[in-house]
């Protein structure tokens, strides 16, 4: 474990908790893409299937349980509890256009052709594009609540920190996983224009609004 991976995990945890609190406190999921949240729940489900069979450390197991629990709680709140506030008209990104190609790619490009490995690979590829419906929704609505931008910033930052973690691990442990690295680069690149808007607008106290 190195400081980049630890801060990356904490940034990820902050993002997930931030979103959960935003929906719970405001009792509304306006501006949140349910499709992205469903895909994140799918990412954690397919990635943490070894939760009970492959113990790595208390930290690892606790974080997996938290991620799984929070992502399902978020999906539940969006589609059940606060369904009335779900903005389906703007959450129109065709998720199947992501899930099907990612599923096919996981079959073709993986480290080992076994169910667990293919599902893990699927979760890595899916995570890299899972935020697209959310970013697409923001372009449709033309704006985002400030708390939502903080959520997105923390979420984008987590994988950027993981990229540094992989550089660190390559130099000090000789470890690298090309699938995770390439997908992590794609994932972080997708946030670049959001990062630009976040830093130039939100951090200057402005609301994030796109030229409609």
């Amino acid at each position: 474990m190195n400081v980049f991976r630890l801060t990356g995990d904490l940034s990820h945890l902050v993002a997930i908790i931030l979103l959960l609190l935003k929906i719970w406190k405001t009792r509304s999921c306006a501006g949140i893409s349910g499709k992205s949240q469903v895909m994140f729940a799918l990412v954690f489900t397919t990635r943490y299937l070894d939760l009970f069979t492959n113990f790595i450390s208390p930290y690892n197991s606790v974080m997996k349980v938290i991620y799984l629990g929070c992502s399902y709680a978020t999906v539940y709140m969006i589609y059940m509890k606060f369904k009335a506030s779900y903005d389906g008209n703007h959450d129109t990104f065709r998720a199947e256009f992501l899930i099907i190609p990612v599923g096919g790619l996981a079959f073709l490009v993986n480290h080992e052709f076994t169910p667990l490995e293919i599902l893990w690979t699927f979760s890595i590829y899916l995570e890299s594009v899972a935020i697209l419906p959310q970013l697409f929704m923001i372009t449709k609505t033309g704006e985002a609540e400030t708390i939502t931008t903080h959520y997105l910033f923390a979420l984008g930052l987590y994988r950027a920190l993981y990229l540094i973690n992989w550089i660190w691990r390559y130099y000090f442990e000789g470890f690298f996983d090309l699938i995770a690295i390439v997908a992590g680069c794609v994932q972080t690149i997708l946030y670049c224009d959001f990062f630009y808007l976040y830093i130039t607008k939100v951090l200057h106290g402005k609301k994030l609004s796109l030229p409609a």
Partner: peptide
């Protein structure tokens, strides 16, 4: 057995 290196990450 030792988990494949990448699988110790979240």
């Amino acid at each position: 057995e030792e988990p494949a290196a990448g699988k110790d990450e979240l």
